[in-house]
């Protein structure tokens, strides 16, 4: 009995949970850890990420009726969409409440689609993708990009750390961004060819 429950597909579990909410614990078991890690990646705050995960599961249950299994869309991607939407909403609230809070990677944040957009599932691996591209770059380019976009350091701090002048830093960042765009396009093409 228990084995058959654990073998059930997510979509089926969700459908059953509409009638008997105790089934929902299976989905919580399956996704709780992964959701927490993903939310932590956005807000870098344990309490906030727990709130996000709780809100995400609640939304999943609330909107379960709207979830229709379409070709190519599975429960997992739908759930991650909700998670990322919720995470970004919390991130924005955090940012408003604490102007100094800059948890989210700026590169990821600037790519955020318009309010209420539904494209976060595509973005949820953006951090990984950015890191993948950065590792292919020359060390001095990768370092300034990471410091500026991922660690959100100021120009002054980076100049100090790298022992370079401001114009040099700006030029290096400009060239690094151009290289980044080129490499990311190549990486995308490679991924496209392998799929």
């Amino acid at each position: 009995m228990m084995d058959s429950q654990h073998e059930m597909k997510d979509e089926e579990v969700l459908r059953k949970a509409m009638e008997d909410p105790s089934y929902f614990s299976l989905l919580v078991d399956r996704y709780e850890d992964a959701f927490l890690r993903k939310a932590m990646g956005v807000v870098h705050n344990r309490e906030e990420s727990e709130d996000i995960v709780q809100e995400t599961f609640t939304k999943i249950y609330r909107y379960a009726g709207n979830f229709k299994k379409q070709k190519g869309i599975e429960f997992k991607s739908w759930a991650y969409k909700i998670l990322m939407n919720t995470s970004f909403t919390h991130y924005q609230k955090l940012k408003k409440s604490n102007a100094n809070t800059e948890y989210l990677d700026p590169v990821l944040y600037e790519d955020k689609p318009e309010e209420g957009g539904q494209d976060f599932a595509v973005m949820h691996d953006a951090r990984q993708a950015v890191n993948e591209v950065i590792t292919q770059m020359p060390e001095y380019f990768a370092r300034v990009l990471k410091l500026y976009y991922l660690e959100d350091k100021s120009y002054a701090d980076i100049c100090k750390t790298e022992k370079i002048s401001l114009p040099t830093l700006k030029m290096r960042l400009f060239r690094a961004k151009r290289l980044f765009e080129k490499l990311s396009a190549e990486t995308e093409n490679q991924h496209g060819n392998t799929h």
């Binding site: 909410p21 929902f24 614990s25 919580v28 850890d33 927490l36 995960v53 609640t58 249950y61 609330r62």
Partner: peptide, 17 residues
């Protein structure tokens, strides 16, 4: 902590149901 979070989630889901 995981159990605590899970219970919070399930309680909310039960309330909604």
């Amino acid at each position: 902590l995981r159990q605590f979070l899970k219970n919070r989630i399930l309680w909310k889901v039960y309330t909604m149901w």
